[in-house]
Computed example of a mutant assay.
Amino acid sequence: MSKIAIVYWSGTGNTEAMAGFVKAGAAQAGTEPDIFTPETFRSELAEEYEAIAFGCPAMGDEELEETEFLPMFEAVEEKLSGKKIALFGSYDWGTGEWMDNWKSQCEKDGAVLVCSCVIANNEPDEEAEAALKAMGEVLAKI
């Protein structure tokens, strides 16, 4: 089983709930992932994990959260080449453009996205919950 990190930022609790579903899926597959917030995840830690799930909601003009998450993510980007990752997050309005842009940036960084990105409009519904648990299972089996 893989050593997995789940790194997320949540302002309203929606993305935190999503991280919990990823963790539950990984646990069902037999792996206990480590959970981090941006304050506790340093770029050096990326090397310790076979896979990382990153979660961040859409903020402002469909962008990643700029104060805590984005600085951490920018510090980790240089470590993403060849790294197996997954992306998730919630939004309140818009079309999900922030996730498309984030996915494109990760691909430019050389990251290997191992499953479809999961987005939820506000609170994750049953469909998002199932997709997030499946994400955790995929990450656990890498």
Rank of each mutant, 00 (worst) to 15 (best):
C106P: 02
W98R: 00
D100Q: 12
S104Q: 12
A120T: 10
N121Y: 10
K108Y: 13
C117W: 02
A111R: 00
V114E: 00
K108A: 10
C117F: 04
W98I: 11
W102G: 05
A111E: 02
S104P: 00
E107N: 09
C106G: 02
C106E: 01
W98F: 15
S90E: 07
E97D: 14
K103E: 07
G94W: 05
S90F: 05
C115D: 13
W93V: 14
C106V: 07
L113Y: 01
A111Q: 01
S90L: 06
D92H: 12
M99A: 10
M99P: 05
S116V: 01
D92C: 10
G110V: 12
N121M: 13
W98E: 04
G96T: 06
A120S: 09
W102R: 01
S90K: 09
E97L: 10
C115I: 04
T95D: 14
W98L: 05
G89E: 04
K103L: 03
C115W: 02
Y91P: 09
D100A: 12
G94A: 08
I119W: 04
G110I: 10
V114I: 04
D92T: 15
V118D: 02
C115E: 07
Q105V: 11
G110D: 11
W98V: 14
S116Y: 05
E97M: 12
K103S: 07
S90A: 13
K103G: 00
K103I: 01
F88L: 04
D92L: 14
W93E: 10
F88P: 06
G96W: 11
Q105H: 13
T95E: 14
S90W: 08
M99C: 10
N101V: 13
W93G: 06
D92F: 14
G96H: 04
A120Q: 01
E107F: 05
Y91K: 13
N101R: 10
D109G: 10
N101D: 13
F88N: 06
A120I: 08
A120H: 05
S90P: 12
